[in-house]
Write a protein that binds this DNA or RNA. Structure first.
Lengths: 228, 228
DNA sequence: GATAAATTTCACAAAATTGTCGCAGAGTCA
DNA sequence: TGACTCTGCGACAATTTTGTGAAATTTATC
């Protein structure tokens, strides 16, 4: 899951440095050098985070933050603001308009990455998943294990995700496309038939106590996970 | 098991109120009114939690938190910081130095207790300083030693912390990021893959009686410590 | 401030997983 | 039954992920 980060900064040197560091660490960086460019580039896939220079010409940094935080679509995107060393009270104003963290220039890439990671962690609360069990087949998201009558089963990551999805959505047919969306995630291009292969691998993995019958083919439509 | 809570607060009235509430609820309260007293009283039995006033004279609250969070023995003690209403950005600074929660004055005893319970629940469901043993592999936090069937094992500090974390949180997958958060601490940024290296060194260190199988790779996800 | 120890990063090897084929066999319908 | 479509299966090359040794960097210690 690659995350998109929007960088709003008027100084080209800093902007490029930021962009470089982001991409080095596997984030997708999008640059904007002023208020208007920022508004343009924010659409399509919304960014997962915004690095915002506070000192944009004309004080538009504050305005931008306010605008984003008052818009339903962008309200929840965390903002890290970048301030010069002396502007101590910027912090306060930043927090007022809803920035989630701040970073004082100059800062090291390490510092920056630490902050980004911290913010992501803060905004992404960890869900607590209960184990699911059907007919002796048990999937525990926490330990990331599947057992059949307490006997450990082995399978690949995709099979695990597939089974997880099935067990949380039983008694319902899903087309191959729908499964691709839910298990593989949108915006990946793979053939429909790939699903078949993973279905087979999943069945194989849980076949020991004939749990493979739980994964049912609905001819011409897709697959269903069902106890009956 | 009565838990010890250290209260660091310069205002006598508040300090005594806190102490009273703690004891009402079965906790053992220890009071300190400044930086130095806090350091004195923290020894002997380490407290299980610290309530720290952020506004200690001379800004020593922040210093104290930093010091505690950078010391091996006190790093894992949860800190709840107490801030005045207006000091909004104290939250941020607090989270930076590793405080686990904060509470804005004035607060009700109810609120306080709820927060304390929540933090205890969050940080460690397992016992604090008891030795832990799994299949002959024994880790003693007090003497800071690891043995396999009474045979002493050698490992670096990071490996020890990693093993300690694993043994107190078994049967659970952790992503490399989560391990970084829990074992390394929140305010450092290192590459994910660094975890791999320390996992290897840990496995090496405990491999003598094939305890290395306890540290399991969950492909595409992270690592798990498990007896089975 | 020099030296040693520990930590992190890097580069490459090893291992596991993935997506795609072609083909066989099963199901469907006239 | 025969023609057709759809699904299951084994194989395999490409890709991704992890393991490992060693160099580079940071941190601790005297």
């Amino acid at each position: 899951m690659s995350r998109k980060i929007l960088i709003v900064e008027d100084e080209a040197a800093i902007r490029e440095m930021l962009s470089f560091v982001m991409e080095q660490h596997g984030y997708q960086a999008v640059e904007a050098n002023d208020y208007h460019q920022a508004l343009e580039k924010i659409t399509d896939p919304l960014p997962d985070m915004i690095l915002l220079d506070w000192m944009l010409p004309g004080g538009t940094g504050v305005q931008l933050a306010k605008k984003l935080k008052s818009d339903d679509f962008t309200r929840n995107i965390p903002i890290i603001m970048l301030t010069a060393r002396s502007e101590e009270d910027d912090k306060i104003r930043g927090l007022e308009v809803g920035a989630d963290d701040y970073l004082t220039k100059p800062f090291s890439p390490k510092e920056l990455m630490a902050r980004i990671r911290a913010v992501f962690r803060r905004v992404t609360p960890t869900a607590l998943d209960e184990p699911i069990e059907i007919e002796g087949l048990r999937l525990d998201p926490v330990s990331h294990r599947v057992t059949a009558f307490d006997e450990r089963l082995d399978m690949g990551p995709t099979e695990f995700k597939l089974l997880h999805f099935f067990m949380t959505h039983p008694e319902r047919v899903y087309s191959r496309e729908q499964l691709l969306d839910h298990v593989w995630g949108t915006n990946v291009y793979v053939e429909d038939r790939t699903v078949d292969v993973h279905i087979r691998r999943l069945r194989q993995a849980i076949a020991a106590h004939s749990h493979d019958r739980l994964v049912q083919t609905v001819r011409g439509v897709g697959y269903r996970f069902s106890a009956r």
